[in-house]
Nucleic acid binder design. Structure first.
Lengths: 156, 156
DNA sequence: ATCCTTGCAAAGTGTTTGCATCGAG
DNA sequence: CTCGATGCAAACACTTTGCAAGGAT
Protein backbone atom coordinates (compact mmCIF):
# COMPACT_ATOMS: atom_id res chain seq x y z
CA UNK A 1 0.00 0.00 0.00
CA UNK A 2 2.57 2.51 1.11
CA UNK A 3 4.92 3.77 -1.54
CA UNK A 4 7.97 2.71 0.38
CA UNK A 5 8.88 1.64 3.82
CA UNK A 6 10.11 4.82 5.34
CA UNK A 7 10.30 3.54 8.87
CA UNK A 8 13.43 1.45 8.72
CA UNK A 9 15.31 3.76 6.40
CA UNK A 10 14.62 6.85 8.45
CA UNK A 11 16.48 5.31 11.37
CA UNK A 12 19.43 4.63 9.16
CA UNK A 13 19.25 8.07 7.63
CA UNK A 14 19.26 9.54 11.07
CA UNK A 15 22.40 7.58 11.87
CA UNK A 16 23.93 8.55 8.56
CA UNK A 17 23.24 12.17 9.47
CA UNK A 18 24.99 11.70 12.77
CA UNK A 19 27.97 10.25 10.97
CA UNK A 20 28.14 12.94 8.28
CA UNK A 21 27.85 15.64 10.89
CA UNK A 22 30.73 14.13 12.81
CA UNK A 23 32.85 13.93 9.67
CA UNK A 24 32.11 17.53 8.74
CA UNK A 25 32.87 18.70 12.25
CA UNK A 26 36.23 16.99 12.33
CA UNK A 27 37.25 17.79 8.76
CA UNK A 28 37.07 14.23 7.47
CA UNK A 29 35.86 13.22 4.08
CA UNK A 30 32.96 11.11 3.00
CA UNK A 31 35.23 8.61 1.36
CA UNK A 32 34.46 5.42 -0.48
CA UNK A 33 35.59 3.39 2.49
CA UNK A 34 33.43 5.29 4.94
CA UNK A 35 30.29 4.97 2.83
CA UNK A 36 30.94 1.32 2.24
CA UNK A 37 31.64 0.42 5.86
CA UNK A 38 28.76 2.52 7.10
CA UNK A 39 26.38 0.66 4.83
CA UNK A 40 27.70 -2.74 5.78
CA UNK A 41 27.54 -1.92 9.46
CA UNK A 42 23.95 -0.75 9.25
CA UNK A 43 22.98 -4.00 7.60
CA UNK A 44 24.31 -6.06 10.48
CA UNK A 45 21.83 -7.09 13.11
CA UNK A 46 23.40 -7.78 16.44
CA UNK A 47 27.01 -7.62 17.48
CA UNK A 48 30.02 -8.02 15.26
CA UNK A 49 33.78 -7.90 15.43
CA UNK A 50 36.18 -6.02 13.20
CA UNK A 51 37.27 -9.32 11.77
CA UNK A 52 33.73 -10.35 10.84
CA UNK A 53 33.11 -7.02 9.21
CA UNK A 54 36.30 -7.27 7.19
CA UNK A 55 35.39 -10.76 5.99
CA UNK A 56 31.87 -9.67 5.17
CA UNK A 57 33.24 -6.92 2.94
CA UNK A 58 35.76 -9.16 1.29
CA UNK A 59 33.14 -11.76 0.50
CA UNK A 60 31.18 -9.11 -1.33
CA UNK A 61 34.33 -8.07 -3.16
CA UNK A 62 34.23 -4.68 -1.52
CA UNK A 63 37.83 -3.69 -1.31
CA UNK A 64 38.85 -2.52 2.13
CA UNK A 65 41.91 -3.45 4.07
CA UNK A 66 41.86 -4.39 7.69
CA UNK A 67 43.49 -1.19 8.90
CA UNK A 68 40.83 0.80 7.08
CA UNK A 69 38.08 -1.18 8.75
CA UNK A 70 39.59 -0.42 12.13
CA UNK A 71 40.08 3.20 11.28
CA UNK A 72 36.51 3.63 10.17
CA UNK A 73 35.17 1.75 13.16
CA UNK A 74 36.93 4.36 15.23
CA UNK A 75 35.18 7.07 13.25
CA UNK A 76 31.84 5.40 13.81
CA UNK A 77 32.57 5.08 17.50
CA UNK A 78 33.59 8.71 17.74
CA UNK A 79 30.43 9.70 15.87
CA UNK A 80 28.37 7.72 18.36
CA UNK A 81 26.89 5.53 15.63
CA UNK A 82 28.23 2.31 17.06
CA UNK A 83 29.44 1.38 20.48
CA UNK A 84 31.53 -1.36 21.95
CA UNK A 85 29.49 -4.00 23.55
CA UNK A 86 31.21 -5.94 26.20
CA UNK A 87 31.99 -9.61 26.09
CA UNK A 88 34.57 -11.52 28.01
CA UNK A 89 36.34 -12.21 24.78
CA UNK A 90 39.59 -11.46 23.08
CA UNK A 91 38.28 -9.15 20.41
CA UNK A 92 36.13 -6.11 20.73
CA UNK A 93 32.49 -6.40 19.77
CA UNK A 94 30.51 -3.60 18.26
CA UNK A 95 26.89 -2.87 17.61
CA UNK A 96 24.67 0.04 16.59
CA UNK A 97 23.87 2.51 19.26
CA UNK A 98 20.29 2.58 18.07
CA UNK A 99 18.78 -0.61 19.32
CA UNK A 100 16.43 -2.38 17.00
CA UNK A 101 15.51 -5.20 19.27
CA UNK A 102 16.81 -4.41 22.73
CA UNK A 103 17.99 -7.51 24.45
CA UNK A 104 20.40 -8.60 27.12
CA UNK A 105 22.84 -11.40 27.80
CA UNK A 106 23.52 -14.06 30.37
CA UNK A 107 27.10 -15.31 30.20
CA UNK A 108 28.34 -18.63 31.40
CA UNK A 109 31.53 -18.10 33.38
CA UNK A 110 32.60 -21.66 32.59
CA UNK A 111 32.20 -22.02 28.85
CA UNK A 112 31.90 -18.34 27.87
CA UNK A 113 28.69 -19.03 26.01
CA UNK A 114 25.72 -16.75 26.40
CA UNK A 115 21.98 -16.71 26.06
CA UNK A 116 19.88 -13.72 25.10
CA UNK A 117 16.68 -12.42 26.61
CA UNK A 118 14.50 -9.47 25.75
CA UNK A 119 14.65 -6.09 27.40
CA UNK A 120 11.93 -5.63 30.00
CA UNK A 121 12.48 -1.92 30.52
CA UNK A 122 12.96 -2.47 34.20
CA UNK A 123 15.98 -0.25 34.27
CA UNK A 124 14.10 3.00 34.68
CA UNK A 125 14.94 3.21 38.37
CA UNK A 126 18.46 4.01 37.37
CA UNK A 127 17.71 6.81 34.99
CA UNK A 128 17.19 9.52 37.55
CA UNK A 129 20.33 8.52 39.46
CA UNK A 130 22.48 8.56 36.35
CA UNK A 131 21.02 11.65 34.75
CA UNK A 132 21.42 13.55 37.98
CA UNK A 133 25.15 13.17 37.37
CA UNK A 134 24.79 14.89 34.01
CA UNK A 135 25.17 11.68 32.04
CA UNK A 136 23.02 11.44 28.95
CA UNK A 137 21.75 7.88 28.54
CA UNK A 138 21.66 6.45 25.04
CA UNK A 139 21.01 2.86 25.90
CA UNK A 140 21.80 0.09 28.27
CA UNK A 141 22.52 -3.57 28.52
CA UNK A 142 22.26 -5.98 31.34
CA UNK A 143 24.73 -8.79 31.87
CA UNK A 144 23.92 -11.75 33.98
CA UNK A 145 26.63 -14.23 34.66
CA UNK A 146 26.50 -17.68 36.05
CA UNK A 147 26.41 -21.23 34.82
CA UNK A 148 24.60 -22.44 31.76
CA UNK A 149 22.58 -25.62 31.73
CA UNK A 150 25.24 -27.66 29.95
CA UNK A 151 28.01 -26.67 32.32
CA UNK A 152 25.81 -27.47 35.30
CA UNK A 153 25.21 -30.92 33.88
CA UNK A 154 28.89 -31.38 33.21
CA UNK A 155 29.78 -30.33 36.76
CA UNK A 156 27.19 -32.58 38.38
CA UNK B 1 32.16 -6.77 71.54
CA UNK B 2 32.50 -9.76 69.26
CA UNK B 3 35.66 -11.72 69.58
CA UNK B 4 36.58 -11.29 65.95
CA UNK B 5 34.95 -10.19 62.78
CA UNK B 6 33.96 -13.43 61.21
CA UNK B 7 31.77 -11.92 58.56
CA UNK B 8 34.30 -10.74 56.02
CA UNK B 9 36.63 -13.70 56.40
CA UNK B 10 33.89 -16.27 56.06
CA UNK B 11 33.13 -14.97 52.59
CA UNK B 12 36.73 -15.35 51.61
CA UNK B 13 36.90 -18.80 53.20
CA UNK B 14 33.88 -19.78 51.22
CA UNK B 15 35.62 -18.67 48.06
CA UNK B 16 38.81 -20.40 49.08
CA UNK B 17 36.77 -23.55 49.55
CA UNK B 18 35.36 -23.19 46.07
CA UNK B 19 38.86 -22.82 44.70
CA UNK B 20 40.31 -25.75 46.62
CA UNK B 21 37.42 -27.95 45.59
CA UNK B 22 38.01 -27.05 41.97
CA UNK B 23 41.71 -27.82 42.27
CA UNK B 24 41.04 -31.15 43.92
CA UNK B 25 38.46 -32.06 41.32
CA UNK B 26 40.80 -31.33 38.45
CA UNK B 27 43.91 -32.81 40.01
CA UNK B 28 45.74 -29.54 40.45
CA UNK B 29 47.91 -28.66 43.38
CA UNK B 30 47.63 -25.95 45.97
CA UNK B 31 50.88 -24.41 44.92
CA UNK B 32 52.70 -21.37 46.22
CA UNK B 33 51.60 -19.38 43.19
CA UNK B 34 47.97 -20.30 43.60
CA UNK B 35 47.84 -19.41 47.27
CA UNK B 36 49.64 -16.18 46.67
CA UNK B 37 47.50 -15.05 43.75
CA UNK B 38 44.31 -16.11 45.46
CA UNK B 39 45.16 -13.99 48.47
CA UNK B 40 46.10 -10.98 46.39
CA UNK B 41 42.97 -11.26 44.30
CA UNK B 42 40.73 -11.44 47.35
CA UNK B 43 42.30 -8.28 48.69
CA UNK B 44 41.40 -6.32 45.61
CA UNK B 45 38.19 -4.37 45.72
CA UNK B 46 36.72 -3.70 42.31
CA UNK B 47 38.00 -4.70 38.91
CA UNK B 48 41.57 -5.38 37.95
CA UNK B 49 43.60 -6.49 34.97
CA UNK B 50 46.22 -9.22 34.78
CA UNK B 51 48.83 -6.51 34.43
CA UNK B 52 47.74 -4.69 37.58
CA UNK B 53 47.74 -7.92 39.51
CA UNK B 54 51.22 -8.80 38.31
CA UNK B 55 52.54 -5.37 39.28
CA UNK B 56 50.83 -5.58 42.67
CA UNK B 57 52.62 -8.84 43.36
CA UNK B 58 55.95 -7.60 42.16
CA UNK B 59 55.73 -4.50 44.32
CA UNK B 60 55.28 -6.73 47.34
CA UNK B 61 58.25 -8.81 46.22
CA UNK B 62 56.03 -11.80 45.72
CA UNK B 63 57.71 -13.69 42.93
CA UNK B 64 55.35 -14.64 40.14
CA UNK B 65 55.88 -14.33 36.44
CA UNK B 66 53.32 -12.97 34.08
CA UNK B 67 52.50 -16.34 32.51
CA UNK B 68 51.82 -17.73 35.97
CA UNK B 69 49.47 -14.90 36.78
CA UNK B 70 47.55 -15.60 33.59
CA UNK B 71 47.50 -19.31 34.25
CA UNK B 72 46.17 -18.89 37.76
CA UNK B 73 43.59 -16.36 36.66
CA UNK B 74 42.32 -19.07 34.35
CA UNK B 75 42.12 -21.44 37.30
CA UNK B 76 40.18 -18.87 39.30
CA UNK B 77 37.86 -18.31 36.38
CA UNK B 78 37.31 -22.03 35.96
CA UNK B 79 36.65 -22.35 39.67
CA UNK B 80 34.07 -19.59 39.42
CA UNK B 81 35.86 -17.46 41.97
CA UNK B 82 36.41 -14.55 39.63
CA UNK B 83 34.73 -13.57 36.42
CA UNK B 84 35.54 -11.33 33.54
CA UNK B 85 33.81 -8.07 33.74
CA UNK B 86 33.26 -6.35 30.52
CA UNK B 87 34.72 -3.02 29.52
CA UNK B 88 35.27 -1.59 26.11
CA UNK B 89 38.95 -1.92 26.62
CA UNK B 90 41.92 -3.79 25.26
CA UNK B 91 42.66 -5.93 28.25
CA UNK B 92 40.38 -8.20 30.13
CA UNK B 93 39.10 -7.05 33.48
CA UNK B 94 38.36 -9.37 36.34
CA UNK B 95 36.56 -9.18 39.61
CA UNK B 96 35.31 -11.48 42.34
CA UNK B 97 32.14 -13.32 41.63
CA UNK B 98 30.94 -12.60 45.13
CA UNK B 99 29.93 -9.00 45.08
CA UNK B 100 30.79 -6.98 48.12
CA UNK B 101 29.17 -3.78 47.04
CA UNK B 102 27.10 -4.46 43.96
CA UNK B 103 27.26 -1.55 41.60
CA UNK B 104 26.89 -0.80 37.93
CA UNK B 105 28.48 1.38 35.29
CA UNK B 106 27.55 4.05 32.82
CA UNK B 107 30.08 4.34 30.03
CA UNK B 108 30.72 7.37 27.91
CA UNK B 109 30.95 6.31 24.29
CA UNK B 110 33.03 9.39 23.52
CA UNK B 111 35.77 9.42 26.13
CA UNK B 112 35.43 5.82 27.41
CA UNK B 113 35.16 7.03 30.96
CA UNK B 114 32.56 5.62 33.28
CA UNK B 115 30.60 6.47 36.39
CA UNK B 116 29.37 4.01 38.97
CA UNK B 117 26.00 3.73 40.64
CA UNK B 118 24.65 1.33 43.23
CA UNK B 119 22.67 -1.77 42.49
CA UNK B 120 18.96 -1.23 43.00
CA UNK B 121 17.95 -4.88 42.75
CA UNK B 122 15.56 -4.05 39.98
CA UNK B 123 16.74 -6.93 37.89
CA UNK B 124 14.48 -9.52 39.44
CA UNK B 125 12.09 -9.47 36.51
CA UNK B 126 14.71 -11.24 34.50
CA UNK B 127 15.40 -14.05 36.90
CA UNK B 128 12.45 -16.21 36.02
CA UNK B 129 13.07 -15.79 32.28
CA UNK B 130 16.72 -16.73 32.56
CA UNK B 131 16.33 -19.53 35.06
CA UNK B 132 13.62 -21.05 32.94
CA UNK B 133 16.39 -21.69 30.42
CA UNK B 134 18.32 -23.65 33.00
CA UNK B 135 20.84 -20.91 33.57
CA UNK B 136 22.02 -20.51 37.14
CA UNK B 137 22.46 -16.83 37.95
CA UNK B 138 25.45 -15.88 40.06
CA UNK B 139 25.31 -12.15 39.58
CA UNK B 140 24.62 -9.39 37.17
CA UNK B 141 25.79 -6.03 36.03
CA UNK B 142 24.08 -3.30 34.18
CA UNK B 143 25.81 -1.15 31.61
CA UNK B 144 24.42 2.14 30.55
CA UNK B 145 26.11 3.95 27.73
CA UNK B 146 25.81 7.46 26.53
CA UNK B 147 27.57 10.75 26.93
CA UNK B 148 29.13 12.02 30.11
CA UNK B 149 28.74 15.59 31.28
CA UNK B 150 32.18 16.67 30.11
CA UNK B 151 31.74 15.33 26.61
CA UNK B 152 28.36 16.99 26.33
CA UNK B 153 29.93 20.30 27.26
CA UNK B 154 32.74 19.75 24.79
CA UNK B 155 30.28 18.93 22.01
CA UNK B 156 28.05 21.93 22.71
C1' DA C 1 59.48 -41.82 39.96
C1' DT C 2 55.73 -39.31 38.51
C1' DC C 3 53.35 -35.50 37.45
C1' DC C 4 52.29 -30.64 38.44
C1' DT C 5 54.28 -25.86 38.59
C1' DT C 6 57.09 -22.21 37.23
C1' DG C 7 59.91 -18.99 34.49
C1' DC C 8 61.90 -17.81 30.35
C1' DA C 9 61.72 -17.01 25.74
C1' DA C 10 59.13 -17.43 21.76
C1' DA C 11 54.91 -17.56 19.34
C1' DG C 12 50.13 -15.96 18.74
C1' DT C 13 46.27 -12.76 18.07
C1' DG C 14 43.97 -8.75 17.54
C1' DT C 15 44.83 -3.92 16.72
C1' DT C 16 47.55 0.19 15.47
C1' DT C 17 51.10 2.91 13.06
C1' DG C 18 54.48 4.58 9.45
C1' DC C 19 54.99 5.47 5.12
C1' DA C 20 54.39 5.94 0.34
C1' DT C 21 50.80 6.35 -2.99
C1' DC C 22 46.42 7.58 -4.49
C1' DG C 23 42.69 10.65 -5.03
C1' DA C 24 39.19 14.30 -3.98
C1' DG C 25 38.31 19.21 -3.67
C1' DC D 1 48.30 21.88 -5.09
C1' DT D 2 46.96 20.54 -0.65
C1' DC D 3 45.44 17.49 2.61
C1' DG D 4 42.90 13.44 3.68
C1' DA D 5 42.26 8.23 2.51
C1' DT D 6 44.10 3.86 1.70
C1' DG D 7 47.00 -0.46 1.56
C1' DC D 8 50.95 -2.71 2.79
C1' DA D 9 54.19 -4.15 5.93
C1' DA D 10 55.90 -3.57 10.24
C1' DA D 11 55.19 -2.58 14.94
C1' DC D 12 52.50 -3.10 19.19
C1' DA D 13 50.18 -4.79 23.30
C1' DC D 14 48.17 -8.38 25.59
C1' DT D 15 47.93 -13.24 26.17
C1' DT D 16 49.30 -18.01 25.43
C1' DT D 17 52.49 -21.90 24.60
C1' DG D 18 56.79 -24.86 24.51
C1' DC D 19 60.19 -26.36 26.97
C1' DA D 20 63.37 -27.38 30.54
C1' DA D 21 64.21 -27.01 35.45
C1' DG D 22 62.40 -27.35 40.01
C1' DG D 23 59.25 -29.31 43.56
C1' DA D 24 55.63 -31.86 45.74
C1' DT D 25 53.59 -36.39 46.72
Amino acid sequence: MSRFDSRSTSKIDQERGRFLKHLARTGLRVSRGRELIFNEVMQIHGHFTAEQLTKKCQKKNLKVSRPTVFRILHDLLAAGVIRETAFGDKHRHFEHVYDEKPHHHAFCIYCHGFIEFPDMKEDMVYHSIIEKKGFKILGHEMHFYGMCRKCQEKAA
